[in-house]
Amino acid sequence: MTSRITLGRIALLVLISAGIVLVSLWIGAESLRWEQIQAEWRSGKPITQCPALSILINQRIPRTLAALLAGGTLALVGCAFQALLRNPLATPYTLGVAGAGAFGAFAATVLMEGAAARIGIVGISGVQLAAFLCALLDMAAIYAMAARHPRMSPAVLLLTGVTLGMLANAGILFLRYLAKPNMLVVMDRWLMGGVDVIGYRDIKTLAVGTIPCALVLLLQAAKLDQIGFDVELAAGRGINVRRLQAVTFIVGSLATAIVVSTVGPIGFVGLIVPHSVRALTGSRHRLLMPISLFAGGVFLCMCDIIARKTFVGETPIGIITALFGGPFFLYLLTKRRFVDWEG
């Protein structure tokens, strides 16, 4: 499908996105007033004595940044994995990274009974670290399996990933069965994902981890066009298919592991954003990937606003992405054919 994007549409999208980001800074349990922030800014008092300014700087800004980074990364990895696995159902979680990460987080919670949240290395909590390590383990297992085959086959990757995901889910259920009732609440909350308890330390982890990964993936755009069209034709055109598959898989999984270990397994962004954006830009990854990165961030930001305001208190964002993204995606599916699904 050819591109339907025009400069006017891009400008419109940028405006809407800027609006969403601004609203995200303003809206929350405490609504901020511009005059109050200005007054506090001018007063020159330490930030601990400025309630509105401190909410803006210590809560709203990191939270918005986290949504932008996490959502953008998930959408970008979704694009890359859909081309890598040549499958429209592929998401950043298809290869089991989210399941393994959640299992790691649960294991740390159960084993250390909450202490894991406090102990940690270089400011990264034990739960987060365990989630990241388990996600890496999942990646290594898949890579070892795929490397046994002469050609890294998308089918082998897919089957291994889905199987490991199921194993992780069984492990999660087992841990839930063992856990004390008071731990279950903590564990379930983690599984629903959230950008609400994010501070600048987490933002730094997210940014340092995901931005280089995103750059590497963006550089593969032209090659992903080629393997998405036909793998052998791509090889004939001088693309080292095996290396491209390895780079996309490792970098994509790494980025996903970082996101999952920081904000939890927020679902759906990696599936619906790439497909929705494809409706606008066509299937050429050079346009699709950067716009998905942008749109994924803004989409998660919007979901976070809804999460803060729709129901009583805060709704976990993972519920919102599916609850609001799902029907929108179904609507899009009735409107047009996304992929030509022949083989």
């Binding site: 050819t2 040549r86 429209p88 080629q226 494809r278 299937s283 992929v339 030509d340």
Partner: peptide, 30 residues
């Protein structure tokens, strides 16, 4: 240049885009 027997595209592309993909060896990745 090599044309394999069965070509299965995953995503839909226009004819023009398909032929543009053939420029890869000249245009490169970047």
């Amino acid at each position: 240049a090599f044309l394999p027997q069965a070509v299965n595209p995953t995503f839909s592309l226009s004819v023009f885009e398909v032929v543009c993909l053939g420029r890869y060896p000249h245009v490169g990745a970047l």
